[in-house]
């Protein structure tokens, strides 16, 4: 081979190649889950197994439990109890299910008492099949807007529930929310970049399922800037090392890598 490979020519990649963790580059995973799921068998789905995996790479995770998203009788209060056991590793997004307004009201009433371990909300419109602009989300979005809270939206290119056109309506209406666009409108990279350019102060692109797709990280960094990009894995769906490999193997600067892997998240989550 004629040139040094990425893990020899890039200091951060070299450090991750040679070590399970890199002290100067903790990993902040802004998009995770927990618990079993209908569609997949997870080798690690339990809290304890996930903690082991995260500690191996020195990662912290903000998650929304699968069961809270898919099975409303599993409460956000139960998620809070899990996080309380591992405050050094976890934070939670409050699961929002637009079909259950009473649960939503209850969780909004509890939200203050769940802070700072609860850092915001998760909206999964494609799965709940309610468009993000639907008024049923309004109580959560109004509260998040009042408090400049984080809201992680599952977004996907081409979706009529949480695609670019739908998100634009919400971003235009609620100007103070700090938007985390999960999966960055997967496949519609130009639309993702455009929304960040229109709203550079409070819209972030989140990378779950994207590191490993050739050219995507470079495209988003070039278009939106690494300061607007957050790392994520959908853990336990995807391995932290796989995703980190997709970042430190991307053709971007080491400064960009640090922004994505930890700096941006540290600004959003002081004290975590």
């Amino acid at each position: 081979m004629s040139e040094k490979p990425f893990f020899m020519s890039n200091k951060l990649a070299h450090a991750f190649w040679e070590n399970e963790f890199v002290p100067e580059c903790p990993v902040y995973d802004m998009h995770g889950h927990m618990g079993e799921n209908n569609a997949i068998t997870f080798p690690i789905a339990s809290t304890e197994d996930m903690v082991v995996h995260l500690r191996r790479i020195h990662a912290k995770l903000v998650f929304c439990h699968h069961w809270a998203l898919f099975t409303p009788e599993f409460t956000n209060g139960e998620c809070y109890e899990i996080v309380k056991r591992y405050p050094d590793v976890f934070r939670i997004y409050i699961a929002v299910n637009p079909h259950y307004s009473e649960i939503m009201r209850h969780d909004l009433a509890m939200y203050d008492s769940w802070k700072p371990l609860a850092v915001g909300f998760k909206i999964l419109a494609d799965y709940h099949q309610v468009k993000v602009s639907d008024p049923r989300y309004a109580p959560v979005l109004e509260r998040a807007d009042d408090e400049k809270a984080l809201v992680l939206f599952h977004t996907w290119g081409g979706s009529s529930f949480d695609g670019p056109d739908e998100l634009r309506k919400v971003v235009k209406k609620y100007r103070n929310i700090r938007y985390i666009l999960g999966h960055a409108f997967c496949g519609m990279w130009e639309d993702a970049v455009q929304l960040v350019r229109e709203y550079p102060d409070n819209v972030y692109l989140e990378l779950t399922s994207l590191p490993g797709r050739a050219g995507v990280i470079e495209t988003l960094v070039r278009g939106a800037g690494s300061e607007r990009i957050l790392f994520g894995t959908d853990l336990p769906w995807f391995d932290e090392y796989q995703a980190v490999g997709g970042i430190v193997g991307a053709k971007i600067s080491e400064d960009d890598m640090h922004n994505i892997l930890h700096r941006n998240a540290q600004q959003l989550l002081p004290g975590f």
Partner: peptide, 17 residues
């Protein structure tokens, strides 16, 4: 799976499996 997927992400995964 290149050119649709990168080489590096799964290399790192295998390296630390």
């Amino acid at each position: 799976g290149y050119p649709y997927w990168t080489h590096t992400s799964q290399m790192m995964n295998i390296k630390h499996a």
